[in-house]
């Protein structure tokens, strides 16, 4: 899996610091960031909003057939996380296997390598989640 450098670069705020967006008209938070509010449409006023990375597991699954670039990581856990600031996002749960997890478990953000295309390509970094202990 290869990602273009310009896309990687644009996604840095979202990936490194979980910068999403917030509609100040209806106080909805969005992650990944949205540029238009799903409720207020054109009337919504959108601005950047930083998520804490804290939340709880809404649903999770273990990946055994990984996309290219992730083969060395299987099996790994992907989850839908209900963020404390009120929206859901998908992310990997690190340092854990299925038996360590249950729905509702508290998680926190962690900074990890997402992908390094090839030995001479750039390294992509970003947030993942880990169990809060």
């Amino acid at each position: 899996m290869k990602e273009s450098i310009s896309l990687t670069w644009r996604r840095i705020p979202e990936r490194y610091k979980m910068i999403g967006t917030r509609c100040t008209t209806c106080n909805s938070n969005f992650f990944p960031p949205r540029s238009v509010c799903s409720k207020c449409r054109r009337k919504g006023k959108i601005e950047p909003f930083e998520f804490s990375g804290n939340g709880k597991i809404y649903s999770f699954t273990e990946i055994h057939a990984a996309p290219a670039g992730f083969e060395n990581q299987i099996p790994y856990v992907m989850a839908i996380v209900e963020l404390d600031e009120g929206t859901r996002c998908t992310g990997q749960i690190v340092d854990a296997t299925l038996k360590d997890l249950k729905i509702g478990d508290r998680v926190e953000g962690t900074f990890r390598k997402l992908l390094s295309d090839d030995p001479e390509g750039p390294i992509h970094y970003g947030f993942k989640f880990r169990l809060k202990k």
């Binding site: 990581q73 690190v94 340092d95 900074f111 990890r112 390598k113 997402l114 390294i123 970094y125 993942k128």
Partner: peptide, 11 residues
């Protein structure tokens, strides 16, 4: 872990 390096440990 396989997705950790000196940059991630630093952060």
């Amino acid at each position: 872990a396989i997705d950790e390096d000196s940059a991630t440990l630093s952060v």
